[in-house]
Amino acid sequence: MKRPVRLEPGQKLVLTANRLLDGRTVWWCADGAWDLHIGRAALLDADEAEAVLARVAGEAQRDGVVGVYDTAVQAAVPPEPVTVREKIRAHGPTVHPEFAVETEQ
């Protein structure tokens, strides 16, 4: 059974995965699409995330994504991941600013 997520005040959960075709990091949006930009990710409360995660993970093959999981973010605009790892996934490698996800359409 999945461990209950403990969020700090001001934090929400987002769902993330990698795209099957090219491995790119993507974020789950409220309309069911997956997007490169975390700014478009749906923000979920802890009590709803588990059910949404189970449903979305079950549709991963249809949606062309791999390894769906949830991660905590500061619920700002745009949301900012809490951990260094997820920040790097969201924005791109810190050593190549020219590869910043923000520069991609």
């Binding site: 990698n18 075709l21 090219d22 491995g23 093959q61 996934r89």
Partner: peptide
């Protein structure tokens, strides 16, 4: 790609061919 193989089934096959899935891409 067509879903016949799951990721769990495919992972050891791609690794045998040097293909990892990392943070941003393969």
């Amino acid at each position: 790609l067509d879903g016949t193989l799951s990721e769990d089934e495919f992972k050891p096959l791609r690794l045998m061919n040097g293909l990892y899935l990392q943070l941003h891409a393969y």
